[in-house]
Computed example of a mutant assay.
Amino acid sequence: MNAQPTDASFDTRQRLIEAAILTFAEKGFDGVGIREIALRAKANSALVTYHFGGKEGLYLEALRYIFNRKACHVAELAAAPRFEGPGAREAAIQGLKSHIRAFMEDLMACDRGPDPLDEAAMALMAREMQAPRPVSSALLMEQIRPHVEHLMHCLQVLRADLTTDELLNMGMSIQGQMLYFRNSLGIARLIRGNPNYPEDLEGVIRHFTDFSLRGLGIPEAFPQSRN
């Protein structure tokens, strides 16, 4: 019969996960040892093996914790529109607009207060996206596949003339501009001389939506240029 974890055991496990997120975000997987993480968590390093089976297990659990903790508006989107038939194109346009809004809300969710753990989680996910580790690839794909499929479905309806590779490039361009915005927010604030930018997230979302629709060549979806 398995023993149930005590409150003290749960607290130690939680401290190790949070310390791992902070430390992996700063130094990457290869630049960190379990002793350093345990020291930061004020725990015995042997507990990393006890709770997680080792450093790789702790890394996976840190990523899983980030996915479970963060907001995920994209996952709450309505089902992708059907490929053809009355209203399919209009539904795909609305689906794309909703996707951009949800993705931006997810990206900006951790910018609503000075929480070092949220900032570290964002930095760690940026590291992982740039160079996924073999041990975490399956978990990463499990999390992002629904997002990719929803966006690709909308794009397939709107641009049925494009190949799969071309549609993937379109999708990367749409999401890439938003990821760059979030990851470069510090320098954007310096350039603007405004540490609170963006006060109007709605305006930023409208810009990315309009920019994406213009790039896709969907003239009926955005206001025409004024003379």
Rank of each mutant, 00 (worst) to 15 (best):
G215W: 08
Q14R: 15
N68F: 07
L39V: 10
E202K: 15
E105S: 01
L16Y: 05
R192C: 05
G85A: 10
G95E: 04
P116H: 12
L155P: 04
M108S: 00
L155K: 11
G95N: 08
T6W: 04
L216N: 14
L16G: 11
F181R: 04
G85E: 10
G186E: 05
I187R: 12
C154A: 11
L60G: 05
A138Y: 06
D200G: 00
L179W: 02
P195S: 03
P223W: 03
L216D: 06
A120P: 06
H51I: 10
F29G: 05
E61M: 09
I37C: 13
I191L: 13
R214T: 10
V48K: 14
N227C: 05
I100D: 00
Q224D: 01
I187H: 11
E128D: 07
S173L: 03
R159A: 03
M108P: 01
M108H: 01
F181K: 04
G171Y: 02
L140Y: 02
F24D: 08
R182M: 05
M1T: 06
M125W: 00
L117Y: 11
D30L: 13
Q4G: 06
L124E: 01
S184L: 09
G54Y: 12
E61Q: 14
G28C: 13
L213H: 10
R127M: 04
G57W: 09
A38P: 11
G217W: 06
M172D: 08
I93M: 12
F211I: 01
G53K: 13
A88S: 05
D161L: 10
I37V: 15
M104C: 08
R64Q: 15
L39K: 13
N194Q: 04
E61G: 04
A20R: 07
H73Q: 10
V32L: 11
T23M: 12
L58P: 06
P198L: 06
V157L: 01
A75P: 03
L58S: 07
D106S: 01
A71M: 01
A126P: 00
S173G: 15
L63Q: 09
L58Y: 12
N68D: 15
K70H: 05
R182D: 04
M178W: 02
Q156T: 11
M170W: 05
Y59S: 04
N227R: 11
